[in-house]
Structures are given as C-alpha cells and as structure tokens.
Computed example of a mutant assay.
Amino acid sequence: MGLFNRWKPKGKMYSLKCTQCGAGFLSSYSLEAPICPKCLQKTKSLDSTIDHDRTCSKCGATGVIYGKDQCHSCYFGFRKQ
C-alpha cells in the first residue's frame, strides 16, 4: 500500500480542455476559459520578451513588450504621467 494509493484531493477536481491547444488537464478550479500549464508558460514567456526594434507609443523609448506597442514602464504604469 503506497502513499499515492491512499491520497485523494480535497474538494472537487475538474477535467478541462485547453482553449489554446486542445489538451486535457485537471484543475481544482472551474475555469471559464481554461488554459493548460504548458500554454500558460508560453504566454508568460512572450509577455516578458522585449522587441528592441520598435519604439513605445507613449514615451518613445526603444524596446516594447512583444506583441504590444508600449514599454514595460508605460504598460504597467510605472512612469508618472
């Protein structure tokens, strides 16, 4: 009798299908727009990637967040208006 044979999750578990890739995964939350951990990690890495060829539309600094038109400071509101 192993440890994992006796382990049971507390609360409900939901079987969900990722809206990005279609893979199935388990979650303890009932999500409206489920996204699997693999696709979530890809999305996080794209948000932290900087495109140095473009300039910010607010302040004009070079280096914007990939897929956006603002730099980190303007996008997250670190610069004072």
Rank of each mutant, 00 (worst) to 15 (best):
M1R: 14
L3S: 10
L3M: 05
N5K: 14
N5P: 02
W7V: 00
W7A: 10
K10F: 13
T19G: 04
G22L: 12
A23D: 11
A23N: 13
L26Q: 04
S27A: 14
S28I: 08
S28V: 01
S30W: 02
P34H: 05
I35D: 06
I35G: 04
C36E: 06
C36D: 06
P37W: 00
C39W: 04
C39D: 05
Q41G: 12
Q41W: 01
K42L: 05
T43L: 07
S45G: 02
S45N: 15
L46R: 12
D47S: 08
D47Y: 14
D47P: 01
D47W: 09
D47Q: 10
S48C: 08
T49L: 08
T49E: 01
T49Y: 01
D51R: 04
D51W: 08
H52T: 13
R54K: 15
T55V: 12
T55R: 08
C56K: 08
S57R: 11
C59Q: 10
G60I: 14
G60E: 02
A61Y: 00
A61W: 00
T62F: 14
G63A: 10
V64D: 03
Y66Q: 09
G67F: 03
K68S: 04
S73W: 07
F76C: 04
F76D: 11
F76A: 08
G77K: 10
G77D: 05
F78P: 02
R79K: 14
R79F: 04
K80L: 06
